[in-house]
Amino acid sequence: MLSESTVEYAEIPLPEVEIFSNAMLSAETTEKVLNALEPIENIRQINMTGEGIPRNLNSGPGKGLPNNHSERKTITVGGREVELKYLVGAFYVELDVENEEMLDEAVGKIRSACESAMPHGFSLSVGRYSKYRKTLRDYR
C-alpha cells in the first residue's frame, strides 16, 4: 500500500473493489481516476499500489543525485494535495455499504468512472484484499 492508512480499521470485513489497471498509470491519469472516484458516495478509503519511484538515486555512482522522475509529483484530489511516490498500477477502494444493492450501485458507479478515466483498460473485482482489523504487527 502507498502509505500508512489515514482511516482507522473498520474492524469488520467491508467489501473492497480492486481496480487493476492494464498499464502503469501516469500521474495525470492517476489524478483523473481519483477525481472521478471522489464524488462517489459510500467510499470509505482508497489505497493505491504501484512501483516505487525514489526521490534521489539510491545506488550506483550517482547515489544521492536527484532522480527528477516526471511522474513523481504532487497531484490534487478533491482539493487535497497528494504526493505521489509511485507509478500507480492498482486501486483498492473500500466501500461502506450495508447490503448487496448498495454494493452493486457503488460498484457500477466505480466501473463507469474508471471506464472514462482509464483508456488502457482495467479489471475490476470485488472482495477483501487488505486488513480490516488490528493484528500483531500493529502493536510493535
Binding site: A23, M24, I53, L57, N67
Partner: peptide, 26 residues
C-alpha cells in the same frame, strides 16, 4: 541500465515503455 534495473516484469506504462524507477529514457 547499469543499476536499479527493476521493471522487466512490470506492466508497461501508458506509452508502452518498460517501467524504470530512474526514468533514463522518456
Amino acid at each position: 541500465r547499469g543499476a536499479t534495473v527493476h521493471g522487466h516484469a512490470c506492466r508497461l506504462d501508458e506509452n508502452g515503455l518498460m517501467f524504470d524507477a530512474w526514468q533514463r529514457y522518456i
